[in-house]
């Protein structure tokens, strides 16, 4: 879902850059207070893991492929603000080192994959809070895994809707949102299944071997 150079015009990119820079500053301020020294190694490794898994394109329909976004996965382990910084670093590396996604379009890509996807994390948070309250953590992982799947799935859906709106209202793209949003949804409703499954598999693996990295319901951050 990396938007390339020239697809969006400046009237869309400038507001998105302002939002992303403001949100990034707030996120840095928040994580300066919340991140612990012993978390740095695992944060680095999970970011690297998401980068590696983003390279893995899985097939969906007639030659089309999808890949992991990974925002909800990172937000589950740490927090949405930490995940925003992590995904932003991945996007910057992809743009500058691998020419994947535009540099001027970075603001839009960060917004789509680090802020629009936040709604997917909220779905994870709601499902987990609603269905896990009376269960002893670790004994029943079903609510956690269901929340993880739907969080991952809807993060892709929301990101694709926002991306559809951006390219639909851009003067540089010949089609409006009436065409771009449904077309984006057709493919991304399938890509979301892959996102949900991969997120679920990784969380399930950690739940089994290193459950201390998955916040308990009492400590589940809604945003910061």
């Amino acid at each position: 879902m990396h938007i390339g150079e020239g697809l969006l015009d400046l009237s869309i990119l400038i507001p998105l850059w302002i939002i992303v820079l403001g949100y990034g500053a707030i996120s840095l301020f928040k994580i300066r207070k919340s991140v612990k020294t012993d978390q740095v190694a695992i944060i680095s490794v999970i970011t690297a893991m998401v980068f590696a898994f983003q390279m893995l394109n899985f097939p969906i329909l007639t030659g089309t492929s999808g890949h992991l976004i990974g925002f909800v996965l990172m937000a589950i382990f740490f927090s949405p603000t930490t995940a925003f910084i992590m995904i932003s670093v991945i996007l910057v590396i992809q743009a500058f080192v691998f020419a994947d996604g535009g540099i001027i379009a970075l603001g839009a890509n960060m917004f789509n994959m680090g802020i629009a996807t936040l709604l997917g994390y909220f779905i994870y948070w709601i499902i987990r809070k609603k269905f896990s309250t009376n269960e002893a953590e670790g004994s029943n992982t079903k609510p956690l895994l269901i929340a993880t799947f739907f969080g991952g799935y809807f993060s892709v859906i929301f990101a694709s809707i926002i991306c559809g709106i951006e390219i639909g209202i851009s003067d540089n793209f010949p089609f409006g949102i009436g065409v771009t949003i449904p077309t984006m949804l057709i493919y991304h409703s399938l890509i979301g299944i892959g996102e949900g499954l991969i997120t679920m598999m990784v969380v399930s693996f950690f739940q089994k071997y290193a459950p201390e990295y998955i916040p308990t319901i009492e400590n589940l951050p809604i945003w910061s």
Partner: peptide, 28 residues
């Protein structure tokens, strides 16, 4: 699969070009 991803496929479906990039004043 090295095929087009979701956004590239949308660009291909709508414009016939998977890497639809209108003239840009900037390239890295």
């Amino acid at each position: 699969l090295a095929g087009p991803d979701g956004l590239e496929q949308v660009q291909y479906d709508l414009t016939g070009n998977g890497e639809y990039e209108p003239e840009s004043n900037f390239s890295f």
